[in-house]
Design a protein around this nucleic acid. Structure first.
Lengths: 134, 134
DNA sequence: CTAAATCCTACAAATCCTATGGGGTTATAG
DNA sequence: CTATAACCCCATAGGATTTGTAGGATTTAG
């Protein structure tokens, strides 16, 4: 399940996509279009900035803006920044791999099938981009 | 992400599949093959029984057994019993639907794409069965 | 009757998610 | 230069969920 954080992120990104190219958009303006906790959104946008998806400008007239064209930011990127692994198990995650203590990974049926699930999710989440939010 | 509960469930089900047809298998025997907390597993097997996947027999010589042939129990069934929704959002869940307060569902980009993710997960999870665990 | 099992409910412990608070820093306008 | 608007950062509170445990009740075989 997507966390609230990721859900809010997509709502905020929708607004940023709509205003893409108009220069930095302050949090207050985002919240005006998509009502949510300003403070919580602040931490989310910060994470997206650290994740390289957003840029920011400080001070008066500042705000957040997309670093790339919407069509170049996949859903997978956004979800990984905010929720971490897309795979249903750490031991089949491409980006957040952790060894599994209980199975030998080569000969584990669960492992094999969860890798299939991972791939089928990624097929959608890497194809879909912020441009599809509109 | 799969919960520990679901992971333990699949490990236990693997054992039950291997011993399918041999009559009831007690928890103690399952734990001997797949080490884990006996008590925790007890609650898990109980849920699987209530979910209709397992049957049980009480008393001496009792234990748990599969209600159907392994090939007739999909991963989706197991996951729904233990973890609930497979969809990444309640508002696109087939079995655990809840209305979404923040979007109008018809015209929500996130909604649309998460439904795609749900479908791609289900395509794998409904096809794969306990028979694939071996 | 006794031992081996499941059944059931409540709860304890730990972790994670959600959200808030407060102060600090930076940049612009005037 | 000052006021103000805005992002930056961290700590933490509160709640929800997950994970695991305890203890007793019930059932069945021998």
């Amino acid at each position: 399940m997507l966390s609230k954080k990721a859900q809010y992120a997509f709502r905020a990104l929708t607004v940023l996509v709509e205003h893409n190219g108009e220069g930095p958009l302050p949090i207050s303006a985002i919240v005006r279009e998509q009502p949510m906790s300003t403070k919580f959104l602040e931490t989310i946008l910060l994470e997206l900035r650290r994740g390289g998806i957003l840029g920011s400008r400080k001070g008066k007239g500042g705000g957040y803006y997309l670093m790339c064209s919407p069509k170049d930011v996949s859903f997978a990127q956004v979800i990984r920044i905010l929720d971490g692994a897309i795979a249903p198990l750490k031991c089949v995650s491409l980006n957040f791999y952790e060894r599994c203590d209980d199975c030998d990974e080569q000969d584990c049926g669960l492992h094999r099938i969860m890798a299939e699930v991972r791939d089928s999710k990624l097929k959608v989440l890497e194809k879909r981009t912020l441009a599809d939010l509109a």
